[in-house]
Design a protein around this nucleic acid. Structure first.
Lengths: 146, 146
DNA sequence: TCATATTACGGGTATATACCCGCATAAGCG
DNA sequence: CGCTTATGCGGGTATATACCCGTAATATGA
C-alpha cells in the first residue's frame, strides 16, 4: 500500500523561517530599547566593546562575527553619535575601538531595557528558548560569539 | 544560605542569537543557490509570486510580511533582471506582480538547489528543526507566512 | 636585508530592510 | 454629488550586511 509521504518541497523554508523570526525579534528588542535611543544591533556592539576593552576593529569583527567592513561602517555611526572612539594604537594599520563616557552611560541606561526585552522574549518562547541557543550554535559560522 | 542565581544579564541575547543564526542560514542557502543566480530572498519572492498568481504589491507584502516599500524595491531588482513583470491592473493605483517566462524558468532551475540546501539545514539542525518553525510562529508579527 | 606574503583598513557597490512623507486614486457617507 | 477617509505606490533616508579591491603597514623567510 502506498504511503503518502509529505513532499519535501512542501516544507516551509528553514532559512526564511529563521530570517522572519530574527526580524520579529529585532522589532521586539528595538521597541524595548527605544527610550535609550539604541537599537539592538548597536547595543550589542557597545556591550561587546565594553567587555573587550580596547579591541581593534578586526578583533571586534572576529568577536561579533561580522564582516570587517560591515563593522567598520557600524562603528562609524557610533563614532559620529559620540558613543565610541576610534584611535590609532600600536600598529600603524589598526584602530582601537573604545567606549566614550557617553557610550558607557548610554549602554548602562539601555541595559535594564534590554533585560526587559529578554524577559519578554523568554515568556514568548517558553520551551523554545533553549532551542534558540542550540540552533545558533549549530549554524554559527565560527565559534558562538553572541 | 545564599543561593547563587545566575544573573539574567549573563544570558546571551536571544535576539542576537536569532540574527546570527539567520545570517548563517542565509549563507548556506545563498551558496547552494549560487548556480541559479538567485539568492534565498529573491527565490522566496519568486516562489510566493508563483503561488499567488497575480498579487498586487501590497497583497504580496502582506503575504511575505515585508514592508511594502521594502518589497517594492526588491521587486524593482527582479523587474530589472527580467524575472518579474509589474503591470497595472484593475485599480489604477495598484500594480500586479507576475512572473515572466524567464522568472519561472529561473525559479524552476533553482528549486532543486533550494531542496538541497533545505536538506543540508535539516541535517545540520537535527532535532532542532521543528523548533525553528515553532520559534517563527511564536514570534511572527502576523500569521505564519513562510 | 629585501622581496614576498599577510594583515588592517577604507571605499565602492549591492542587497535587504524599515519608516515616513507625499501624491494619486478609490471608497464611503451625508 | 462632493467631502473625507482609506488605500496603493514611489522616493527619501537610514541601518544592517556582505563582497571585492586598493593601499598602507607589518611580518616572514630566503
Amino acid at each position: 500500500m502506498r504511503v503518502y509521504t509529505r513532499n519535501m518541497n512542501d516544507d516551509p523554508c528553514l532559512c526564511t523561517s529563521l530570517r522572519q523570526a530574527a526580524l520579529a525579534a529585532t522589532q521586539i528588542y528595538d521597541e524595548a530599547l527605544e527610550p535609550s535611543g539604541l537599537k539592538i544591533t548597536m547595543f550589542r556592539l557597545l556591550r561587546r566593546i565594553s567587555e573587550a576593552g580596547q579591541p581593534t576593529i578586526s578583533e571586534l569583527a572576529r568577536i561579533v562575527d561580522l564582516d570587517r567592513s560591515t563593522l567598520g561602517r557600524n562603528l562609524k555611526v557610533l563614532e559620529r553619535s559620540g558613543h565610541v572612539q576610534l584611535s590609532g594604537g600600536q600598529d600603524e594599520r589598526s584602530k582601537i575601538v573604545s567606549l566614550t563616557a557617553k557610550g558607557r552611560t548610554r549602554f548602562e541606561k539601555a541595559l535594564p531595557l534590554w533585560a526587559k526585552a529578554q524577559q519578554t522574549m523568554q515568556a514568548r518562547l517558553g520551551d523554545e528558548k533553549a532551542a534558540v541557543y542550540a540552533i545558533q550554535s549549530k549554524l554559527n559560522r565560527k565559534a558562538a560569539q553572541v
